[in-house]
Write a protein that binds this DNA or RNA. Structure first.
Lengths: 345, 345
DNA sequence: ACCATGATTGAAAACGTTTGCAAAAGACTA
DNA sequence: TAGTCTTTTGCAAACGTTTTCAATCATGGT
């Protein structure tokens, strides 16, 4: 009757109960696979649900104390392949366990992080995964105090000894990559930096500098180009490097996407890789194996990080009192064809 | 007291009320910016909320009839840049409006689609976006009947006249691309197909065939390589094409990612693009402008699709009775440097 | 036939909000 | 001062579940 803007009420547990001729608590028990339910009633209830097209209301279930079967995922930026890869892997792992993902992108508004974490963890979700470059640890303590299950995924050194974490020691990867170049006789090594406000980017830069120092090669500030972890940054950064009076003979990019930018910038200048310019990337995205020449890179165990983090979180949801686990996955130098001996001067 | 596994109860509206010395409905009114609240009480409530660290429980709010401020997003596969781009754009647009995103990936399990759509739309979310290649329309009718706001994003011809949709006519794009190659004198044109079970892939193949027919060029089945919209598919498909007794002089790839695979396969064989092999892609992902030579491609308005779909959905949430809107965004041929005249035989 | 036992069931109380309704409190008008 | 509005408040009933508790129902042993 004339209900213009009225959302049709959906089928509830009570409707099903009426249809099946039982009390509504029985329906709940059938839903949750309770042990003590006579099989004929169970049958009747199931048929009624079928007939009425019943779907459980997750909000209500959660509110009443059940599980929401939803995991919160806070990421900084969906745009780069790094995040995308990890998110995909988390998604796969969690959907296997029957969980949905609720996604919050901070878009680098660090202030609002805490607010959203609060929202997500008050009722909405059963657990929280955080894949964010910079974190104030303030709200983490709250989560810990509330015994709310969460796992941090990070590509930098631990900064918080009390949080369960999956980390990836890529400091060491960047160090080894730089050494590889030095061992091939390179002395002028360009560095395509990542976003300066990211811990991981700073660490990689740090490793690069340490490796140079170790081999008594003076730092040349002009060889360090600011970047943004994106293709365009790699491209333009490389252009600037090639414009130097004495251009570098090798480039270390803070991720593969920038390295591909470097490839195309070099090609644009008619340079050949690796003969005229050696390049090393970071991440080992799928493309890196196929580009020509195949890209030497530091493999970040992205899929593995996602999987491990998801599994760890599920364990905490099972038992929040579990001791704090930290999983450290090593970055690995993958040697392909984009590095060769420095041309002799 | 000895509550081992007991989650600490969180601060509720009632706690705030007690702290502020008002009734709990007043707190709710303050939360929702009601008009009739004396400013001193409002102040007291706000302070109490502050002091206690109150966060609204969204489940409860939704259950009680409010908005969840969450949008459901169903995608097929997070892994490819196409989806990633659209998702990112949706995310940006929605987060501007204060919405979170709840993500469900079907992983091509078409059967379970309906179940999850049901879940998502019963309480969890205020609206639904669907970015899925193949859809049975059955559950859409349910949504429509329930007046639940949803918008479909598709890159194929409409198959359902009653659903709000943002589509992208890429049939025409594929047709124009093929014509471009033909007009450059190419007669043997390889085709790197997409997943056969995707509507969009079939449409593009169809357009390719129609364009050839139109120019009286006979179809050569061996020129059509199966693909998967991924880098590897493009790479291997191109390898097979180049192994033919009479290899093609041009390749039309169903997306840029495969086209990049074609690039590297050709380079691996020592062929030059476009001199020895012309290539056209599909999507215009950011990289395409930078690769060398820059890739001629059919631009899919991915960002625009995401934005428009999000905005449209928000309108429907505002007023579900609105008439059914269909937004059609044209694909556009972007001519760069990867196509040239066919070598004369 | 009767009692103890355990398997089934139903009623009712949460869960944390929003919201309709009516009471209380002010602010005017006469 | 009483009477009439208009704000401001509090109460209580939803919302759709889960879950506790007690009641009912079989069952088998004696």
């Amino acid at each position: 009757m004339g209900d213009k803007n009225h959302k049709t009420r959906s089928v509830t547990i009570k409707d099903v109960a009426r249809e099946a001729g039982v009390s509504y608590s029985m329906v709940s028990r059938v839903l949750n696979d309770y042990e003590h339910v006579k099989s004929d009633k169970r049958q009747r209830v199931l048929e009624a649900m079928q007939r009425l097209g019943y779907t459980v209301n997750l909000q209500a279930r959660t509110l009443a104390g059940g599980r929401s079967q939803v995991i919160g995922l806070v990421v900084h930026d969906l745009g780069n392949p790094y995040t995308a890869q990890v998110v995909q892997s988390i998604d796969e792992e969690l959907s296997l366990a029957g969980y949905e993902l609720i996604l919050h992108t901070t878009h680098a508004h660090f202030q609002k992080e805490a607010v959203y974490v609060d929202m997500l963890t008050h009722g909405m979700t059963d657990g929280l995964l955080m894949l964010i470059p910079l974190g104030s640890t303030a709200y983490l303590e709250q989560l810990r105090a509330r015994r709310f299950p969460y796992v941090i995924i990070a590509d930098y050194q631990a900064f918080d000894d009390f949080s369960p974490m999956v980390t990836n020691v890529n400091w060491q990867g960047a160090y080894e990559a730089t050494c590889l170049l030095i061992n091939h006789g390179h002395r002028r090594i360009g560095f395509l930096a990542g976003r300066a406000d990211f811990r991981s980017a700073r660490e990689r830069l740090d490793a690069y500098e340490k490796a140079l120092q170790k081999h008594d090669i003076p730092l040349q500030p002009e060889l360090i180009q600011p970047g943004n972890y994106q293709y365009s940054g790699g491209y333009h950064g490389t252009m600037s490097l090639l414009d130097l009076d004495v251009p570098p003979t090798a480039i270390l990019a803070t991720n593969d996407t920038s390295a591909l930018g470097a490839y195309d910038a070099a090609r644009g200048r008619g340079l050949r890789i690796p003969d005229d310019l050696s390049v090393i990337g970071f991440d080992d995205i799928p493309q890196s194996a196929y580009v020509h020449p195949a890209l030497t890179t530091v493999r970040q165990p992205l899929v593995e990080m996602g999987r491990q983090a998801a599994q760890l979180l599920l364990k905490y949801i099972e038992d929040p009192e579990q001791s704090v686990v930290r999983i450290i996955l090593p970055a690995e130098l993958v040697i392909r064809d984009s590095v060769c001996q420095a041309p002799s001067r």
